[in-house]
C-alpha cells in the first residue's frame, strides 16, 4: 500500500539532532552534580527549597499559558521553565521561608517570562530578576545562609521553612558566605578572615546551592562546552571580566584591601555565573563578538558592584543591567554580511 507523501513547504527535508526539550534537559543534567552535592551539604532544606520552586514554577507557568491561550499549555513541558526554576533555587538561600521560593518562581515565571511573551521573548534573565526582586524586598532572608555544620533533620527543617520562619529563629543556624564575611569585615574594620580556597572549590562553605561547589559546576560547564550546547564566548568573556579587574585591583591596590583573584576563581558563584547564568541564550546577544563583550561586562560589573557598591551581590544586578543593553550590543557587533 502506498502511503501519502508528506511534502514540506521548503527547506531541508531532514533535521539535525538538536531539539529544544533535549537541550533543556542536558543543561539540567549538567547542573545535577552540583545539585546533588548541595543536597548532601545542606540536607533536607536544599531539597525542599528546590521542590518548592520547581513545583510552584510549573503551576504558575501552566496557568499563565492557559490564560494566554488554550493551546499553549504544551509549552509548559518544554523544560525551559524547569531550568529557570532550578537556576533560581540555586541562587536563593538553601533554607528560607516557603513563600520566598514561591514568590521567587512567580516573579521569574509569570512576570519576567510570561508577561513578556513567553519563552524567547523575555528581555531579562528570569532567575536573576527574581533574585533581585527578593533581595530588594526581603533582604534579611536573602542574606541568611544556612551553615552546613548546622543543617537540621527533616522535621526541624520543615518547621523552620513552613511554620517558625521568623528571621530571628534563623540567626542561630545561618552564617555569611566567605565573600560576604570578608566584605563585612572590611567594611566594619574587623580583622580580615583568610578564605579557605580548597573548601570553597570543593564546596563545604555556606552560600546558595549554586555557590557551594565550584568544582562540580565547572564539571557541568565543561560538559556543556564539549557537547556543543554552549560556546566558549560567554563563559570566557565572563571569567575574563571577573579576573581582569580582580587581578588589577589586587596588584595595584594597597596591601590587604582586595581579595586575591584566586578566591574569585574558586568561588562557586563565579562558576555558576560563567557557565549557567550568563549563558542563558534568550537574554544574551546572538552574535559571538557581542556575546563576549556582554559577558565580559557582566563579569567586570559583578566584581565591581560588591567591591564598591552598596549590595553584597553583584552578579544579578550586572546581568539585569547588561540584559537591557543587548539590542545595542547586537547592533554594534553585527557581522559584515558576505560580499558586502
Amino acid at each position: 500500500m502506498e502511503k501519502e507523501l508528506k511534502p514540506i513547504k521548503q527547506g531541508p527535508a531532514v533535521h539535525g539532532k538538536s531539539q529544544l526539550q533535549l537541550l533543556m534537559l542536558k543543561v539540567v543534567l549538567a547542573l545535577s552534580p552540583a545539585l546533588i552535592w548541595a543536597f548532601y551539604v545542606f540536607g533536607w532544606a536544599a531539597f525542599i527549597a528546590l521542590m518548592l520552586t520547581c513545583v510552584s514554577g510549573f503551576v504558575f507557568e501552566w496557568v499563565a499559558l492557559r490564560l494566554r491561550s488554550r493551546g499553549r499549555t504544551r509549552q509548559a513541558y518544554d523544560g525551559s521553565g524547569l531550568l529557570s526554576c532550578i537556576l533560581l533555587a540555586m541562587s536563593l538561600p538553601p533554607m528560607g521561608p516557603w513563600w520566598l521560593y514561591v514568590l521567587g518562581s512567580f516573579v521569574s515565571i509569570v512576570i519576567t517570562k510570561q508577561l513578556f511573551g513567553g519563552l524567547g521573548q523575555n528581555v531579562f534573565n528570569p532567575a536573576m530578576s527574581a533574585r533581585v526582586f527578593l533581595l530588594l524586598s526581603c533582604p534579611a532572608y536573602m542574606t541568611a545562609w544556612l551553615d552546613p555544620d548546622k543543617k537540621a533533620g527533616l522535621v526541624d527543617t520543615l518547621r523552620y521553612m513552613f511554620i517558625d520562619w521568623h528571621r530571628e529563629s534563623y540567626d542561630a543556624l545561618t552564617t555569611a558566605t566567605t565573600l560576604d564575611a570578608w566584605r563585612n569585615a572590611k567594611l566594619t574594620g574587623l580583622p580580615l578572615p583568610q578564605p579557605e580556597l580548597t573548601d570553597m572549590f570543593v564546596g563545604s562553605t555556606a552560600g546558595s546551592m549554586g555557590e557551594v561547589s565550584a568544582m562540580l559546576l565547572l564539571l557541568g560547564g565543561m560538559y556543556l562546552l564539549f557537547s556543543g550546547i554552549i560556546r566558549w564566548h560567554l563563559p570566557a568573556g565572563f571569567l575574563a571580566g571577573v579576573m581582569l579587574p580582580a587581578t588589577l585591583f589586587w596588584l595595584l591596590g594597597p596591601e590587604g584591601t582586595h581579595l586575591s583573584p584566586l578566591v574569585y576563581l574558586v568561588a562557586g558563584s563565579t562558576m555558576m555565573g560563567a557557565f549557567f547564568i550568563v549563558t542563558d541564550p534568550v537574554t544574551a546577544p546572538v552574535t559571538p563578538h557581542a556575546r563576549f563583550v556582554f559577558a565580559f561586562l557582566i563579569g567586570a560589573l559583578s566584581y565591581l558592584i560588591p567591591a564598591y557598591g552598596l549590595y553584597p551581590v553583584g552578579l544579578s544586578f550586572a546581568v539585569l543591567l547588561m540584559n537591557s543593553t543587548v539590542p545595542l550590543l547586537e547592533r554594534l557587533f553585527r557581522p559584515r554580511i558576505f560580499g558586502r
Binding site: G11, A13, L20, L23, Q75, S80, G118, G120, V282, P335
Partner: peptide, 25 residues
C-alpha cells in the same frame, strides 16, 4: 530523521548565526 518544522519559540541560541555561510542572522 525527517524535518517536521514544529516551529517552537526561538530561544536565540545563535547556532543558526554560527552556521550561516552568508554571515546572516
Amino acid at each position: 530523521e525527517l524535518a517536521v518544522y514544529s516551529a517552537q519559540p526561538c530561544i536565540r541560541c545563535g547556532v543558526c548565526t554560527e552556521v550561516c555561510p552568508a554571515r546572516l542572522q
